[in-house]
Amino acid sequence: MLIRPLGRPGDLGWVVQAHGELYAAELGWDTSFEALVAKIVGDYAADHDTAREGAWIAELDGRRVGCVFCVREDDTTAKLRVLLVHPDARGHGAGNELVSTCVEFARNAGYDRMVLWTVDGLASARKIYEAHGFELAEETPQHSFGHDVVGQLWARELRASGSRTA
């Protein structure tokens, strides 16, 4: 398993395509989810601060099998976005490595806090988030991606209480 910075030709398109195909196949989500991922990826590609925002690709045997982005929510809060691990790579630690890379980057970039949004029912992702210190902060029933879902906001502190140093 290799975790590398996003940036090779095809990486951006792969992130969008993999999300669209995987979430349609596994959860029956419609193309509005793929469109959301395309917007997130497009916004990142068009304008991101390399010192405070990053994205990574997981590779297994030279194939893209996962991704995660760290983007700025505000001056003190980073947001983990578009975590995905392809079924071919599940059980190899890709999700754990991607989240570790993202959290460490956010901490080193000077953020105090990290948040993420997901939906209820993604048990493997929830285990990874909990293992990395994220706690469920809010749940909101909504209709998204062609389904009734429960949106979840997860959060974690990146710095010790009262400390402004790494």
Rank of each mutant, 00 (worst) to 15 (best):
V103F: 00
N108F: 02
R126V: 11
E139R: 12
E59D: 04
L136M: 14
A24N: 05
R8W: 02
V103A: 02
D11I: 12
A38M: 05
C70A: 15
H19L: 11
G7I: 11
F134E: 00
D112Y: 13
A131P: 05
G42F: 03
W117S: 10
G62C: 00
T76A: 08
A166Q: 11
Y23A: 06
T50A: 11
E53F: 03
F33N: 00
G62M: 00
A38G: 07
V16R: 12
S32F: 01
G146W: 15
E21L: 03
L60W: 02
I57S: 07
Q142V: 14
V149L: 13
G162P: 03
E73D: 09
S124D: 07
Y44G: 12
E138K: 13
H147A: 10
R81S: 00
A46T: 03
S163A: 00
R4Q: 08
S144N: 14
I40S: 06
L80F: 10
T165H: 14
D43H: 02
A131T: 10
E34V: 01
L2A: 06
W14S: 10
A78H: 05
R159K: 15
L2R: 12
L136K: 06
G66W: 09
H86T: 11
A78R: 12
S163D: 03
G42L: 07
Q152W: 15
T118K: 07
G121R: 03
D88Y: 09
C70M: 09
G91M: 13
A38F: 02
L80P: 07
I3S: 13
E97G: 05
Q17A: 10
T165N: 08
W154C: 04
Y44K: 10
A106K: 09
S32I: 14
T165Y: 04
T76M: 08
Y23I: 10
G54F: 08
V41M: 01
R4N: 15
H92Y: 11
A46S: 01
A25T: 09
R107W: 14
V15W: 07
V149D: 06
A58E: 01
V150F: 04
H86N: 06
G121C: 02
M1V: 10
F69P: 01
F145R: 15
T76N: 06
Q152M: 14
A106Y: 09
V103Y: 01
R4G: 07
L84Q: 09
C70K: 11
A55I: 15
H143R: 12
G20K: 11
R52F: 08
K39Y: 13
L60V: 06
G162L: 05
I57H: 04
G28H: 08
C102Y: 01
G162S: 01
G133Q: 03
C67D: 00
E21H: 02
T165C: 09
L84I: 15
G121F: 04
V37K: 04
E157M: 13
Y44Q: 12
L158M: 01
E73L: 12
E139I: 15
W14D: 04
D49K: 07
L116F: 05
A35R: 13
L98A: 13
E138L: 11
K79D: 02
L84Y: 11
L12R: 05
L136H: 09
Q142R: 13
Y23P: 11
L116A: 00
E34L: 01
E139M: 06
P5G: 02
T140H: 05
G13D: 09
Q17L: 12
E26F: 07
T77D: 04
E104I: 12
R8Q: 08
L36Y: 12
G93M: 10
K127D: 10
A109Y: 08
A24H: 04
D49T: 12
